[in-house]
Each structure stands twice: as C-alpha cells, then as structure tokens.
C-alpha cells in the first residue's frame, strides 16, 4: 500500500493551523508490535504520530459520534449565543465514510461539524486470522512490504502474504474508497472483489433450522457479555442501550445463555440497513464470536428486499427510514 503518512501529517497540521478542525481522530502506532490504535490529535506537534496503514482496524466514526455528543452535552447549560461549535476531523476509509453517512442521515450531527480526511484502503490485517496463520505464536516484530508480512514471532521468523490474512469483510468490500470527503489523500485504491460477498451466507441459508440454531447457540456460548462489539460499533450509539435499562428489564445481567442470545439478537436486528461491514465488532471481540454471519445475512436481505446498502450514498435514505410503494410486503401474507 502507498505510504501516505507524510501527506496525512502535513494535511493534519494545516487543518489544525488554519483552525478548520478542533481535533483530528486518526491512527497511531500501537505499543504492541504490528498494531495501530485510534488517537486524537489537537496540536500540530501531535500530528507527527499519525499513520495510516494495513494495520488500522477500528472504524473511527464511533469516536466522531462520541466526541460530538459529549461536546453537545457540555454546551447544554451554556447560553445559546455563547455556544461553541466543535469541528471533528476524521481519517476515514470507505467503511468509515459509510458510517458517517448513516450518522448524517440519522441527523446525529451536521455535515459542517465533521471534516472528512479521506484515505484509500486496500483492506486491513485481521489479527485473529494472522494469529491463526502463525499458529498463535506471539508476534515480536514485523513489517509489511509489497504485500508480504515479514514477522518475527516467538517461534521463529515467518512470512505471510497480506492477501491470506486480510479481513474477510475487506476482501468483498464494495466501498474501499471514501464515498464522501472534504479532502482526499493518496490515489484511489483498486477495487476489491465483491462477487462472492454472500457465498458463505448462501451456504448457511441452505442448512436446516436445527443446524443453524446449533451454530447460533455454539457461537453465542462464547460471548462473555463484555459489550466490546456494541461499544466499537458506530451504529450503536443509543444513549442508553436496552441491555442497561432496568425498568423494565429486557435482559438479565448474568451469564444465562438465553440472555446472551437475546442481547445479541436484539443488537443484530438493530443493524438492519445500518451495518457497513467494517468488521470492528468482530475485530474487538475477545472471544471470537462469529457475528458477521448474521450481520451479513441482514445486509443481504436489505439488498434483496429493499435494494439498499447501508450508508452507500447521502441521497439513498435508510430502508427503515423511507417508504416506497415497491417495498416488499408479501411477508405480511406469507410469514
């Protein structure tokens, strides 16, 4: 992947200097080898830590929503005429811009409150995939060059092809270049290959109800209710999640497996027309629950029934937010 770090830092410094943004959300090098982690840059000096590479996983739109919400809450007790606007800059790849579009369509903030620094993306390294290909040996150091990951592990040196450890959601990504942006850095990335986007789902759909239920049960049993999936998701921004409501209480707090299933089911169904397949929930899950199987099924239904892909354009309203006479209604007669 083209190294755009220098360009990114220059742009960040200029935006901060010209006061076009108050803070920039981007990525920096992590403390563990071969990792990148979200960071916040509000001074020119800090801008030198910004990076963008194949190790950047998190969808940063989540932080845009958090920062703007926190700022608005802090302004509530300020007289209207004294209220300050805060502009958030964000380093955004294709999926991040899709999440920003969802936020904008759902009227979470104004387009003028976010400054989008678009970056091209050719997919990111899936840590769990990588760990598997290294037989779980600890990564001690490594570099990515020319599509190859050269890694020093506790069990010796290994070379892994980027294409073998790329996240599955990235392989079939349709929108790896930003859909909306205020400035673009780097040249557009070549298209990915979405042809087999739903091949796994098609296979899964063919299974019997019993088999599908057995798989769902097995996956949900791994869940420890740490809420990492929900917290990482840009579309999960409810001020109070139903899980935390106590009057009435929708789900139990404990480890009962039906409570876990209800939590996950409810979260998944809240993703109808709102999941951009950024893979954040999957990458943060400490237990490796296969959430994507279900999110992708919901996505497929949305495409097939309503011709809608979440956050794919500012004009195309979300399927649950618009009415069309062509909307499928046969489920009413034939459930």
């Amino acid at each position: 992947m083209e190294n755009i770090d220098t360009k990114l830092r220059e742009v960040a410094k200029r935006l901060l200097l010209e006061k076009k943004v108050d803070v920039i959300i981007g990525y920096e090098k992590g403390t563990l080898p071969m990792t990148a982690t979200p960071c916040f840059v509000s001074t020119e000096a800090e801008a030198d830590k910004l990076v963008f590479n194949d190790l950047c996983t998190q969808n940063l739109a989540k932080f845009v929503h958090d920062l703007i919400t926190n700022h608005k809450n802090s302004q509530k007790r300020v007289k209207p005429e004294d209220r300050k606007k805060k502009i958030i800059g964000v380093v955004a790849r294709g999926c991040t811009t899709r999440s920003l579009i969802i936020h904008l369509q759902e009227r979470q903030y104004g387009r003028d409150e976010v400054y989008i620094i678009g970056v091209p993306c050719e997919g990111y390294v899936d840590r769990k995939n990588l760990a598997k290909s290294l037989q779980q040996a600890e990564i001690l150091d490594g570099t990515i060059e020319g599509g190859q990951l050269k890694i020093k592990t506790a069990a010796g040196d290994k070379t892994v092809a980027f294409k073998d450890v790329i996240a599955p959601n990235c392989v079939v990504c349709r929108f790896n270049n930003p859909i909306i942006s205020d400035i673009m850095i780097g040249s557009p990335a070549p298209a990915m290959n979405p042809d087999n986007e739903y091949s796994k789902i098609n296979e899964f759909e063919k299974k019997s109800i019993e088999e599908r239920w057995a798989y769902f049960t097995k996956e949900m049993e791994k869940c420890i209710r740490c809420n990492a999936c929900r917290q990482a998701c840009p579309s999960c921004y409810c001020p109070t999640c139903f899980v935390e409501q106590s009057q009435p209480q929708w789900v139990g707090i404990g480890e009962d497996k039906t409570d876990t299933q209800v939590f996950q089911c409810m979260r998944l169904y809240h993703m109808v027309g709102r999941c951009v397949d950024c893979g954040s929930c999957i990458s943060v899950c400490p237990m490796g629950v296969d959430l994507r199987n279900y999110l992708k099924k919901i996505d497929k239904d949305c495409v097939e029934l309503f011709g809608s892909r979440a956050g794919s354009s500012m004009e195309d309203m979300p399927p649950l937010g618009k009415y069309s006479e062509q909307d499928k209604e046969d489920f009413i007669f034939n459930p």
Partner: peptide, 13 residues
C-alpha cells in the same frame, strides 16, 4: 480514556 471503548474486556480477562 479518549480511545477507551468502555467495554469490559480488560476487567473480564
């Protein structure tokens, strides 16, 4: 805490 997701991974592990 800026980038903290407020998930329980660290404490649960």
């Amino acid at each position: 805490h800026g980038k903290c997701l407020a998930c329980g991974t660290c404490t649960y592990m």
